[in-house]
Design a protein around this nucleic acid. Structure first.
Lengths: 104, 104
DNA sequence: ACTTCACATAAGTAAACGCTTATCTATTTG
DNA sequence: CAAATAGATAAGCGTTTACTTATGTGAAGT
């Protein structure tokens, strides 16, 4: 779980799609494949990459493996991004989105 | 300048090092090479990738080309990350860093 | 004008990547 | 126990990546 692992994992569009799907709710690998035109081994390999990057974590349930978003990977990106906070546009949508509902 | 371009650009450690160096102040390609054990063409190619991802922008100055951080690429990452805000750890350093000095 | 300097580009190469087909492990069910 | 199901792993293959050396381009200095 390094920055390189995380950015590499997210550099693939298919993997981002998988991650996005998981963000809307935990599910197993077969459920993830629904409507995705991707082979079973390919999905398994993508999940391994995401898992290795701590973007996703698994929880075995009998012969199923349930996958869900792992906050650890996201936290590392947030930390990386925070280093360059001073460069973010001052008043753009991205910043608004980030700040919405945040009251520390 | 797509999400794929940006994540791919940041997936390389050398490129992240270059970006980090630029974040501490604009400079030209030769200055960037100082203490980095990287050939001139390699640097030029890395800068092209970063430029294509809108993580960096150039400004010609005679026979020098000054490079600086481009906020556009960072904004896109911030936007991507914002989509998964609900997954960020509730009380970790990353979040504190993000919120520090932010008073919307 | 000619050389030097800053940088970009071209072509080639070894390694990594994302996929495929085939096979393996592990759990459940008849 | 045997067949079926969920998923992981292995091996092979074409494409991409990050580097190399060599050359090109354009501005500056003499």
């Amino acid at each position: 779980m390094t920055e390189t692992d995380i950015f590499k994992a997210l550099a693939d569009p298919t993997r981002r799609a998988i991650f996005e799907k998981l963000a809307s709710g935990a599910m197993n690998a077969s459920a993830l494949r629904q409507g995705m035109e991707i082979s079973q081994p390919a999905m398994s390999q993508h999940l391994a990459v995401l898992r290795n990057a701590k973007l996703v974590r698994e929880e075995r349930d009998g012969r199923f493996v349930n996958y869900e978003v792992d906050p650890d990977g996201l936290a590392l990106i947030a930390q990386w991004l925070a280093k360059y906070r001073s460069y973010w546009p001052q008043r753009v949508d991205a910043l608004k989105l980030l700040l919405k509902d945040m009251d520390p």
